[in-house]
């Protein structure tokens, strides 16, 4: 009797095991546990929509697979560099020209139909027909040029690896370099944790360079002396968050700054004194809802403004989005 009881009990237990396995296998336990250690980036990315003062009026595909650099000349022609080519578009997004080259350029600047491209550690000069005019020797084999600006007869190149801005004349001769720590003049040097380092010229030929590790935009004289700087470290809308921000800037004809901030993915306007004015576009302009929660790679590759104050943004999908004031 006892034995029978034991057998019966054991067999029932065994069948329970079989049942447990079977039910666990076939019941679709779509348990969507909350993640206690979640980093809620989508909350940080929320932007008060009343702050948005620009609207998207147009967008077009660059048709390039690895678009890297965007520039606009005085005739409002758009130049896009990347994937071993440069393409030209008019302001409504119609392709008007372009040429191929044999290196991948990461940034470019245009003046008088002369195109200056930063390709790794070299500066290349092309004319609009796609002929290479000159190729300057690398200043340093390790250099990585992330931004080029033109002013008068000089070319300014920002080198992220050496943390220097180099000023060249049009013959390719180095005029000066800035970036060395100079505590006497109150300059701490550029802190550049990753290859985001921009240099740009304002409406009054004032030179600005980003010090991304310090969240500063700094003004230098043409002699390379630091003049002033502005910038605030903060996750709130007025400041710059994370590391290496603002990672791209452009200066509007009226002297206002357009900044792109990776991570939170926001493009904002600051007035010439560095006071936050408003938002051009938030992450929703570049991301789907899902991406707001999950995506962590930067969405914007470069930005530029034309002489009417229209803002052009080149995104990571090789699309150019065009924003104007509301």
């Amino acid at each position: 009797m006892k034995q029978k009881l034991i057998i019966g009990f054991s067999v029932i237990l065994l069948l329970t095991v079989v049942y447990l396995i079977g039910s666990d296998l076939f019941t679709n336990s779509s348990k969507h546990d909350e993640n206690p250690t979640e980093y809620k980036i989508d909350k940080l990315r929320q932007i008060d929509s009343s702050l948005i003062c620009y609207k998207e009026i147009n967008h077009f595909n660059s048709g390039m697979s690895k678009a890297k650099g965007l520039a606009i000349d005085e005739n409002n022609t758009i130049y896009i560099a990347g994937n071993k080519q440069v393409l030209l578009f008019n302001s409504s997004g119609i392709k008007t020209g372009g040429f191929k080259m044999d290196t991948l350029a990461h940034c470019l600047a245009v003046d008088n139909d002369q195109i200056y491209l930063g390709a790794g550690n070299r500066i290349l000069q092309y004319n609009i027909a796609g002929e290479q005019i000159s190729s300057w020797p690398a200043f340093n084999p390790k250099s990585f040029i992330t931004s080029i600006a033109l002013n008068g007869n000089h070319i300014y190149a920002a080198d992220a690896i050496n943390r220097r801005v180099f000023k060249y004349n049009k013959n390719g001769n180095l005029v000066w370099e800035i970036g060395k720590k100079d505590t006497a003049k109150g300059f701490e040097g550029f802190v550049i944790p990753s290859p985001y380092f921009e240099v740009a010229f304002g409406a009054y030929n004032d030179m600005w360079a980003v010090n991304p590790g310090k969240h500063l935009v700094q003004n230098f004289s043409v002699e390379g002396e630091i003049q002033s700087s502005w910038g605030l470290t903060s996750f709130s809308i007025e400041g710059f968050s994370g590391c290496c921000n603002p990672s791209h800037i452009a200066i509007l004809p009226n002297g206002e700054f357009v900044t792109y901030e990776k991570g939170l993915e926001r493009i904002k306007i600051y007035d010439p004194t560095g006071k936050f004015r408003c938002v051009v576009a938030g992450p929703e302009s570049f991301m789907r809802k899902e991406d707001l929660i999950l995506k962590i790679a930067p969405c914007v590759v470069d930005l530029a403004v034309d002489n009417e104050g229209t803002i052009y943004v080149l995104d990571a999908n090789n699309m150019v989005k065009v924003f104007v004031k509301k």
Partner: peptide
């Protein structure tokens, strides 16, 4: 890639 040290090593 491209013979460039992409991540600037701090000085």
């Amino acid at each position: 890639l491209f013979g460039v040290q992409r991540f600037p090593r701090p000085e």
